[in-house]
Amino acid sequence: MHKHFKIYKPYGYLSQFVNNGQKQHRKKLLGELGDFPEGIMSVGRLDEKSEGLLLLTTNGKTSDLINSSKVEKEYYAQVDGDIDEAAVLKLSEGVEIGLHGKKYITKPCNVFKLQTAPDLPERWKKLRNERHGPTSWVSITLTEGKFRQVRKMTSAVGFPTLRLVRVRVGTIHLANLQPGDSLEVLDIESVLDLS
């Protein structure tokens, strides 16, 4: 029987269980965060500097389905500067980003400015503080997941991402997990409403 988990991937960890090369030899891996079953894999990825909700499964078909464009992924991005409505509108309509040396227009998505900073655990590696200028938070919900897409999108509208946290995949939320915590998800297909 397949096993599924949700985990709060901390800042500084790779979204994988095995080192794939010399450069990754000293990197922190997900396997250090718990005793997971053999054959477990991350569903999608969060880059080393991103944090938040990551799903884990022993079922490759489930992984493929969740990674498809049928499932929404919501991110909270803390950006450099006080993001304005014009930038939010551009983000929601789709912006041009670079992808593997080519130009790519992102699909329309749901974006809004958060009026207050989200209640997230403090990051162990401190961000710059307010004396370096204002920051603001936006929610960005995508159905695609290109390489470093959210970071590239916010930069394209003039508000580079300082901190990026995935808070939702489908109907599964980060909820009250702390960095490094994991929780088994018993019926991932029905929770994601994919049946």
Rank of each mutant, 00 (worst) to 15 (best):
66 I>W: 01
98 G>T: 08
70 K>C: 02
17 F>N: 05
29 L>N: 06
6 K>W: 01
192 L>A: 01
9 K>I: 11
112 F>L: 10
20 N>R: 12
116 T>E: 08
55 L>K: 00
22 Q>N: 03
65 L>G: 01
54 L>T: 11
193 D>L: 13
60 G>T: 06
15 S>K: 05
98 G>Y: 07
130 E>H: 11
59 N>I: 12
38 E>L: 14
72 E>Q: 08
89 L>I: 12
108 P>A: 14
3 K>R: 12
69 S>Y: 10
172 I>F: 13
150 V>G: 13
51 E>W: 02
133 G>R: 07
7 I>Y: 01
56 L>P: 00
74 E>M: 04
42 S>E: 10
193 D>H: 09
126 K>N: 03
66 I>H: 03
185 V>I: 15
8 Y>P: 00
99 L>P: 05
92 S>E: 11
119 D>P: 04
104 Y>G: 00
58 T>H: 06
89 L>C: 04
103 K>F: 10
134 P>W: 03
177 L>Q: 14
195 S>Y: 06
165 V>K: 04
64 D>W: 09
28 K>P: 07
8 Y>W: 12
12 G>L: 10
169 V>M: 03
30 L>C: 11
132 H>P: 02
19 N>K: 14
4 H>F: 12
30 L>V: 08
40 I>F: 04
169 V>L: 03
15 S>V: 03
159 F>R: 02
110 N>L: 15
15 S>Q: 07
103 K>M: 14
190 S>V: 14
78 Q>E: 15
107 K>Y: 08
47 D>E: 05
23 K>P: 00
66 I>C: 02
164 L>P: 04
77 A>C: 13
100 H>V: 03
5 F>V: 11
121 P>L: 10
144 E>M: 13
103 K>A: 14
175 A>F: 07
96 E>R: 11
125 K>I: 14
55 L>F: 02
102 K>V: 10
192 L>Y: 11
83 I>C: 00
24 Q>H: 08
97 I>F: 04
111 V>W: 01
94 G>Q: 04
175 A>Q: 14
70 K>L: 13
188 I>Y: 08
193 D>P: 02
17 F>S: 09
84 D>K: 07
170 G>P: 01
50 S>D: 08
138 V>G: 05
178 Q>C: 07
94 G>C: 10
98 G>K: 10
61 K>E: 15
189 E>N: 13
102 K>A: 15
161 T>E: 07
164 L>A: 04
142 L>D: 09
168 R>V: 11
79 V>Q: 02
3 K>S: 08
99 L>Y: 09
136 S>W: 02
78 Q>W: 02
134 P>V: 00
59 N>Y: 06
151 R>C: 10
10 P>C: 10
89 L>S: 08
83 I>T: 02
17 F>I: 05
45 R>W: 11
107 K>Q: 09
58 T>V: 06
4 H>Y: 15
45 R>F: 09
97 I>P: 00
169 V>S: 01
82 D>F: 02
9 K>Q: 11
58 T>P: 08
37 P>Y: 07
4 H>M: 09
117 A>T: 06
115 Q>P: 00
77 A>D: 10
